[in-house]
Design a protein around this nucleic acid. Structure first.
Lengths: 147, 147
DNA sequence: TTCCTAAATAAGAACTATTCTTATTTAGAG
DNA sequence: CTCTAAATAAGAATAGTTCTTATTTAGGAA
């Protein structure tokens, strides 16, 4: 199933004018194949678990290149670390207060917000909602712990 | 006008069981008296501009104490730095894409969101909206630059 | 008011995520 | 196949934050 994405990934990189290097390919493929929003450390560990594929510095520079062309975006929901997301179409995020896990919320799962009555002088272009609460595992755990 | 807040601040700290130290008082008072969402560096500079009031380490620990009791919250909207906000009642944020300035958006400036149709397994408790765009100065600047 | 002790502060070392530097390697155009 | 601009690896450097320890202090008790 990774094979299917190969063309797509190479094509995406080339369309954006990026050279297709093994490291850059691996970083982007990794991001596309996971639903969480990994940190650089997690990507590094994942890529190099069997054989060395990329150094940490190169993961940073690959992510920067991918961000510059709009294939990847940075997600800031936690103190001190950046997380990365290959889903660049508009969507919202859910963050578990307990374990910190981040889940995408499809754009249309929430009603469209009218930005009509913002305070004056704010020229809005986009918005995004961050929902906080408990994910299923943490929710169950909290039930059994307190009840 | 600062005088007016004195009682309020001392009272707030005591109610939360915090010792009232000059440093802690100064940090909280400073946060309450400004509308932006300063970084530790900005608070440090502001507090010590005339005479030395607090070290950087103490600002960190004061903020931690204030956060622990719910008088202050952390705002994460920028890579690499935490910002702090003494407004702990629910509200949204506007972030200027150009200069990075952050403005509070009153809760009722945006319609209440229904969290009914979230993906299953997400137990939502709160949410908050981040609106991005241009603030007035940057907007005007962009007009005159491109037109 | 004075004393006492747990808590807070200052200063700087330590830590961690990220960026920068430089020598080496390589993708991909010609 | 060659060539060159761009990418990589490795580690040094940087910046924000946390930790450590000796000293000071807030505020309750005597």
């Amino acid at each position: 199933m990774l094979k299917q994405s190969t063309d797509v990934i190479v094509k995406a990189l080339k369309e954006k004018g990026l050279r297709v290097t093994p490291q850059r390919y691996a970083v982007y493929a990794n991001l596309r194949n996971r639903a969480d929003h990994p940190t650089v450390e997690q990507i590094l560990k994942d890529l190099n678990q069997d054989l060395p594929i990329s150094s940490q510095a190169t993961i940073y520079s690959s992510l920067q290149a991918l961000r510059d062309v709009g294939l990847v975006r940075e997600v800031l929901l936690e103190e001190g670390v950046s997380r990365y997301d290959a889903n660049v179409s508009p969507h919202h995020h859910f963050r578990c207060d307990c374990c910190g896990d981040i889940t995408d919320i499809p754009w249309h799962s929430l009603p469209e917000l009218s930005l009509e009555s913002l305070p004056p002088g704010l020229h809005a272009q986009t918005y995004e909602v961050t929902v906080k609460g408990l994910c299923e595992p943490c929710y169950r755990h909290s039930l059994s712990a307190s009840g």
